[in-house]
């Protein structure tokens, strides 16, 4: 099997604009506007979550997706109904991209009765059978065998669905990831592994943690093709996603996409992020922000003018404010919920 990699030892930075071998196809007006709105919804949601965490309304761990929005939004544009999505604990963006209601997600963050898990799961543990979102998993790397199992179920049933398993650069050093790669390739399971390489596993940079920093090569010894993608450009993500989806649906087995991305905030809310410079963050933010890039493109191509975009911005802000309002005033779960949902 040919392995589609170029410049194998070259670790492209998030702002490099590097992508797969193919030129990036343009989005239509509808695609650009839709991507813009969803990415903005995620960003505003996360900003609000950060704010509410600061107010003590959200407890425990809270891992924000700010900066990485193009990854899940672009991938989601490549999927169809029936496909399954699973990820780790930096999961709010995935839920929103899957179409879950921001109210239910925010109410789960505040631990309230009408959160997606009745307040019993929290930020890292949310699910929606209806939307094909299989969580929300708190143990680094554990979602990879689970996502492989979702692919196994599709293969077993002989349907046309595939699973997309997201994990970070940190998780790629977990042994179970390679156990999964092996089985997925051995049995030709329809599994897309999306490595969200944001360059820091909590406070440890990828260079300090990985002997091979080109993570798209991590499937080489299992004959799983992989490619590096500019994860800040939603068009590049979608194009790479289309390619991987076609591969999987053709019955050729798993595919690895390494999304070069960046998180602007700390690992979690309580991380002061002293392991990198402010300049590094600002550089990405000012030159390669996934939302700004789409916004500029929309204006440049006259898909919409400033006023129309302001309208979208306002609508997104309203949606998030409503979610925050709901999550603030929704009651805590009834004490009787303590003992429910342990067995069925």
């Amino acid at each position: 099997m040919a392995v589609a990699q170029k410049n194998p030892s070259d670790q492209a930075g998030p702002a490099s604009g590097k992508s797969g071998s193919l030129p990036i196809p343009d989005f239509t007006k509808g695609q650009d506007l839709s991507a813009y709105e969803t990415m903005l919804t995620i960003r505003r949601f996360e900003e609000k979550a950060g704010q509410m965490y600061g107010m003590g309304l959200i407890g425990g761990f809270c891992h924000l997706y700010i900066g990485q929005e193009a990854v899940v939004v672009g991938m989601q544009m490549a999927l169809k109904d029936g496909d399954q999505v699973i990820t780790g604990y930096r999961d709010h963006g995935h839920m929103i991209a899957c179409g879950m209601d921001p109210k239910g997600v925010m109410a789960e963050l505040t631990g309230r009765a009408h959160g997606y898990s009745k307040g019993k799961g929290g930020s890292m543990h949310m699910f929606s059978v209806d939307k094909g979102f299989f969580g929300g998993h708190g143990i680094v790397g554990a979602q990879v065998p689970l996502g492989t199992g979702l692919a196994f179920a599709n293969h077993y049933r002989g349907n046309d669905n595939l699973s997309v398993t997201y994990f970070g650069d940190g998780a790629t050093n977990q042994g179970q990831v390679y156990e999964s790669f092996n089985m997925a390739a051995l049995w030709k399971l329809p599994a897309i592994y999306v490595i969200e390489n944001n360059h820091y596993a909590m406070g440890t940079s990828i260079e300090r943690a990985s002997s091979e920093v080109n993570l798209s090569r991590r499937g080489l010894s299992f004959n799983i093709p992989g490619e590096q993608v500019d994860g800040m450009d939603v068009r590049a993500v979608k194009a790479a996603g289309d390619n991987a989806v076609a591969w999987c649906r053709a019955g050729k087995g798993p595919y690895i996409l390494e999304m070069l991305t960046y998180r602007y905030r700390g690992h979690s809310m309580s991380d002061p992020a002293k392991y990198r410079t402010r300049e590094e963050v600002d550089k990405v933010r000012n030159t390669h922000d996934p939302i700004d890039m789409v916004r500029h493109r929309i204006l440049e191509k006259k898909f919409a003018n400033e006023d129309a975009l302001k309208k979208i911005d306002g609508a997104v802000r309203d949606l998030i404010n409503q979610a925050a309002e709901f999550a603030t005033h929704d009651p805590e779960p009834d004490v009787s919920e303590l003992y429910t949902d342990i067995y069925r």
Binding site: P145, G149, E179, S180, M183
Partner: peptide
Amino acid sequence: KRVIDTPITEHGFAGLGVGAALAGL
């Protein structure tokens, strides 16, 4: 298809089994 030899990979196939079960198998 229904009686499956796995590699020696307990962590992996236990997780794969759970994933398949979450999907209804």
